[in-house]
């Protein structure tokens, strides 16, 4: 930690924030952490975030749901042979509904659980540089860099349209709410 400083820039607008991040990545800042009040594809794209691993879990959950539904419907039909209107015992058209619903249910539950695991939620430590306004209407970019680069990083953030740029040392961290202005 010694030898590096943290700089926090706050943005009112998503596009400026994304441009700022792209610029920072070009000049190889050591670490960039972003707080966003909304899910933003633009910012995800800017920080070069890899595709979420949650997707694989949702797919697996969905397929498991379909298999479960097939087992449930076909199994119960075989278990209780009921001739309804001369239709075959295993009459699959209505099973599509059960398959669809269980696919959604299993896929949805897998999504929530794997999201919680991958996002490490609940988190009991507040990330450095966080301010509650980054959960309201401001985007926050936290940059860790060499002290020698700090002037350049600050100017990049300002040029990208940051409303304010502060050294993290000056950032009140106790509750994250007192805002330097």
């Amino acid at each position: 930690m010694s030898g590096s400083v943290e700089i926090v820039g706050s943005f009112a607008d998503e596009i400026g924030c994304a441009h700022g991040i792209e610029k920072l990545r070009e000049v190889k800042a050591i670490g960039v952490r972003v707080f966003s009040p909304i899910p933003s594809h633009r910012i995800e794209h800017a920080i070069g975030k890899p595709k979420s691993r949650v997707r694989a879990f949702v797919l697996t959950g969905g397929i498991l749901g379909i298999i479960t539904a097939l087992a449930l419907t076909i199994g119960t039909s075989w278990e209780w042979n009921l001739d309804a209107g001369g239709k075959p015992v295993v009459s699959w058209p209505p099973f599509i509904i059960i398959m669809f619903e269980l696919m959604v249910l299993f896929g949805g539950i897998s999504a929530v659980l794997s999201f919680l695991v991958h996002a490490r939620v609940p988190a009991f430590e507040i990330a450095e540089g966080y301010s509650s306004r980054f959960s309201e209407d401001r985007f926050g970019v936290v940059v860790r860099c060499e002290p020698a680069d700090s002037a350049q990083v600050e100017s990049i953030l300002r040029d990208a349209g940051a409303e304010e740029v502060v050294r993290a040392a000056a950032w009140p961290r106790a509750d994250g709410n007192a805002v330097v202005s």
């Binding site: 209107g85 239709k87 058209p93 209505p94 599509i96």
Partner: peptide, 12 residues
């Protein structure tokens, strides 16, 4: 399509 089909299929 399916919503119509399933009802008609079921009623037969």
């Amino acid at each position: 399509v399916f919503s119509q089909y399933i009802v008609i299929w079921y009623g037969d």
